[in-house]
Amino acid sequence: MTQRPSQASRRPSPLALLLALALAHAHAATAQEATPPQAPAELASKLTALAEAHKGKVAIALKHLKTGESFALNADVPMPTASLIKFPVMIEAYRQAAEGKVDLNAPVTLRKKDMVPGSGVLTYHFSEGATFPLVDAVHLMITYSDNTATNLVLDAVGIGSTAATMEAMGLPNTKIHSKVYRRDTSVFPERSKQFGLGSTTAADMVALLDDLHARKIVDEKASEAMWNHLLTCDDKDKFPRLLPPNVKIAFKTGSIDDARTCAGVIETKGGPVALCVLTSENEDKSWGPDNAGNLLCARAAREVYDSFSARADGPAN
């Protein structure tokens, strides 16, 4: 007698859903390849001018998430991420949670050897032995770009797993290479030498943001949770800097000496726009808010906001 499989056994896993989503992206891209809708020419011109004036390498990608209008400049060129790669790490944590491989409510304990320098609060404001849920480490990783929290999350999900999931989603250039400030843990040594902590493309980041905004990554509940984490990012020097104070942005950023990165969804008056700005080999290596990479991110965000907000009462709304 053949036993009928249960409903649970027939339900596709989150990884299978991610694979299906990647295939859907490929089919959609093929269907739209001939006549992709383009962002306004004036906006494209302004973004190109900003990139050309910057003393360093620049990649920009954007997509209006309702009309599909897009713009790309070096958008398929792999670039260093700095802490922007923590966004895909968060996706991997929620994917593994959905598959039962990790428990986001399980406690993690902060040890002295876990503490690394740089951005965040754990190393500087928490005592050894502090215990908190893994989901709080994820939140600290996104909100404050906490390096120690990131390494705790990587301990839970594994360093190489994020890259494997991104590849399954059709984003093979998006990888975290090692723990933060722990180059000796690299699972991609050559990429670590070239890109540092992580690597991606502007197009990859916009694709992830598009799916997250549509609540298609892992599942609706997980997507909503991840979206809410991104809404709390506390970097005021990049996308938010020149925008009106009431504008909602779900985003993540990264900063190292010669690179500044930012990717997020900006709620313009004319609809949501996913935007990614990546810079590297920057001449300006200063760490103040007026760093040239920060200003490029801020100015690009303002141009995008103004362009799409200007049509709020027009047909594209």
Rank of each mutant, 00 (worst) to 15 (best):
G196V: 08
G196F: 06
L197C: 05
L197F: 05
L197G: 04
G198S: 05
G198L: 05
G198R: 05
G198P: 05
S199Y: 04
S199I: 00
S199K: 03
T200K: 07
A203L: 09
D204R: 04
D204P: 06
D204Y: 04
M205V: 04
M205W: 05
V206Q: 10
A207H: 07
L208T: 08
L208K: 13
L209E: 09
L209G: 06
D210K: 08
D210A: 09
D210H: 12
L212S: 07
L212H: 07
H213E: 13
H213T: 04
H213C: 01
A214D: 12
R215H: 07
I217F: 02
V218M: 02
V218C: 03
V218I: 13
V218G: 02
D219K: 00
E220D: 02
E220P: 00
E220L: 00
A222D: 00
A222G: 00
S223Y: 01
S223F: 02
S223A: 04
A225L: 01
A225D: 01
W227I: 02
W227Y: 02
W227K: 00
W227C: 03
N228A: 06
H229F: 09
H229Q: 04
L230E: 00
L231I: 01
C233W: 01
D234F: 01
D235N: 11
D235R: 00
D235Q: 00
K236H: 03
K238H: 07
F239N: 03
F239R: 04
F239M: 11
P240G: 06
P240Q: 06
R241S: 04
R241K: 13
R241Y: 06
R241M: 03
R241V: 01
L242Q: 07
L243K: 09
L243E: 05
P245A: 15
P245D: 15
P245V: 11
P245H: 14
N246W: 09
N246Q: 15
N246L: 09
N246F: 10
K248S: 14
I249Y: 04
I249V: 15
I249E: 09
F251P: 01
F251A: 14
K252G: 08
K252V: 09
K252P: 07
T253P: 10
S255V: 11
S255W: 13
D258L: 05
A259F: 12
A259R: 12
A259D: 11
A259E: 12
R260T: 15
R260Q: 15
R260K: 15
T261H: 09
C262T: 09
A263D: 11
A263V: 05
A263L: 05
V265W: 06
V265E: 03
I266S: 10
E267H: 07
E267F: 03
T268Q: 08
K269C: 10
K269P: 05
K269L: 15
G271P: 11
G271N: 12
P272S: 13
P272F: 09
V273F: 06
V273P: 08
A274T: 10
L275T: 05
L275A: 10
C276L: 11
V277L: 08
V277Y: 07
V277Q: 09
L278V: 11
L278Q: 10
T279G: 08
S280I: 04
S280F: 03
S280A: 15
N282V: 07
N282L: 15
E283H: 14
D284N: 14
D284V: 14
D284R: 15
D284Y: 14
K285V: 15
S286M: 03
S286R: 10
S286K: 12
W287T: 13
G288N: 07
G288V: 02
P289E: 01
P289Q: 02
D290G: 01
D290E: 12
